[in-house]
Nucleic acid binder design. Structure first.
Lengths: 336, 336
DNA sequence: TTGTAGGCGTTATCAT
DNA sequence: ATGATAACGCCTACAA
């Protein structure tokens, strides 16, 4: 790999001049600059970003720490972050924690050591430890799931979204809505559960909550929902806190030949790509995932520019949207 | 940020000893080693990976260049690569090109400049330029889409998969199967189209091919399929070359109130998470996406270890699996 | 076993 | 405007 000195030699100038010419500094003779560029092209010179980063004491890389790349919500979020980052001249180090604590710790550590310029983090749990980054003076923007420490935060109206969804189910005259959620240490899922609970309580109904682990081998989630349906006084409607859980419920319902929007009501968080091709179409509480990613990127880039502690922590809250399709409807006719 | 010298000062030893102690070199007095570790912990020392990489002349980072993170096939692939990488002690720089040539070029350039240890690349087109990496001595493994230059390659049996799928459609007595594909410069899509074409030709049927652009604003794809259905002699069955196109076709069919597995047959590449919740369930040609990612990672890590040109280019071909569910079936009874 | 010192490839300061 | 040179923080001969 050719280095700066090699280019300098060919162009018959000093390394300083080469560096200046290649970084289009103002103060360089056009003739020399041209000679340098020619020499660089000839040698196929590529600046060594490592050396540059060392000298400049900083990279142009962000870490994006998310819990599950297979969840369409997070892939949309990732695209938002990445698009904005790329526009701002940053690259993105994708860190997929798979909801695993050790893995999250390891990634945050790597990010700190690699001296990333900033990090967008979806913490696994509310007590996830990002102090490694903070101590290293690396700005962090938290997205989706709240964190104990505070700091910049981009979120959606989870509680309110769940309230809307549950009210909607009751408005459709479903009487025993259940909430299919995630483990209680998942902040966002917990907020949605609470929104559900608040409505159910207010109406004097009994709450039915199931918490499905993120990793369910061999469709354990389907079995759990199935057991719910097999019990006495089974739920007649479901609110799921993410789109993957909607799939779980749909599987369970299919197994028992129950039809959504007919025998059972269903509404889910996140407007998945497939929501409109199931029969009947899936009602959802949509989150602006892509825009949340963009918002996080903006916050982060401002934080990086500011140096630090310019302003206090900022929170951006984006609205969820209730989209009623067929799956949550309850027909007027008496059931057969 | 504390540096090696700071730790050395606190521990009352030289920087060399600190470095050795922290990299658990054998040759260091346990007492000193302990003093070093204590000092490091006390100061909250984190090794500067940039300096380390410069000195070692190499990073522990891979670039993963893919065309579309929203496509479940690629997210599964990414997970495979990332899992394997993380097991091997590498981090992954995710580069999402969005099927955009300029963006791909930029990312490959960044990867070369950052001196990544290796790259797993899904090239946008067959003539995508990875020479920047190769020239820099960076091993590249190409996945999914063939590349002109050769090199290590992980692929699935696209042609054969399409043949199987098309034969299956004909076996179900559909007479006018159409292939909904992607632009002709997409190698994999093109192979699938050819597999379809081969079967259709052999049976003396007319081929019906539509190529949908990857970015279709405002459901342009749906409009195209809709036009196909509105024409004279419309297709009675569809083979789609990826799962997102299956969604497009399902939307178009719904608009015309046509039922798969009844009025129309449908089979798609890629076993999406939602395939089993549509009614009837979607028949697919499944690819082992995750495993393909793992395979690519293995090839890459071997290539990195070997130095270079140890062996010639290797190709790993993984089998696709025809999974017949309901959507491709044709009922015996005459249509109403 | 420990320490000293040179160098990885850039950038930026300071003379010229 | 250009050039020599000192860092950036770490690793590793080589010497002690």
């Amino acid at each position: 790999m050719p280095r700066l000195v090699d280019v300098a030699e060919v162009a018959q100038v000093s390394v300083a001049t080469v560096s200046r010419a290649l970084n289009n500094s103002r103060t360089v003779d056009p003739v020399l600059a041209d000679r340098v560029r020619t020499a660089a092209a000839e040698l196929g010179y590529r600046p060594n970003a490592i050396a540059r980063n060392l000298r400049r004491r900083g990279t142009r890389v962000w870490a994006l720490v998310i819990t599950n790349i297979s969840n369409p919500f997070y892939t949309a979020l990732a695209r938002g972050v990445e698009d904005a980052a790329s526009e701002l001249g940053f690259s993105v180090l994708l860190c997929n924690t798979e909801e695993d604590e050790a893995r999250e710790r390891r990634y945050l550590d790597v990010a700190a050591q690699e001296r990333v310029a900033g990090a967008v983090v979806v913490p696994r749990a509310i007590d996830s430890e990002v102090s490694g980054l903070v101590d290293a003076g690396i700005p962090v923007v938290v997205v989706d799931r709240r964190l104990d420490g505070g700091g910049d935060f981009v979120t959606a109206t989870s509680f309110e979204g769940a309230v809307d969804a549950t009210e909607h189910l009751l408005g459709e005259r479903w009487r025993r809505p259940a909430c299919i959620s995630r483990p209680a240490d998942t902040p966002t899922a917990e907020q949605r559960r609470q929104g559900y609970q608040a409505v159910v309580d207010r109406h004097g109904l009994t709450s039915i909550v199931s918490q499905i682990p993120f990793h369910d081998p061999a469709d354990a989630g389907v079995a759990i929902v199935d057991a719910l349906l097999a019990g006495q006084d089974p739920p007649d409607a479901f609110l799921t806190v993410d789109s993957m859980l909607a799939l779980v419920v749909l599987h369970a319902l299919r197994r028992r030949r129950l039809r959504t929007g007919h025998d059972v009501g269903l509404i889910s968080f996140d407007d998945a790509a497939w929501a409109r091709v199931v029969e009947p179409p899936l009602s959802v509480v949509a989150q602006p995932a892509y825009e949340m990613g963009v918002a996080a990127a903006r916050l982060l880039s401002e934080r990086i520019r500011e140096g630090f502690d310019e302003r206090g922590p900022r929170t951006v809250t984006m609205s969820t949207t209730l989209i009623v399709r067929g799956s949550s409807r309850r027909p007027r006719e008496p059931r057969s």
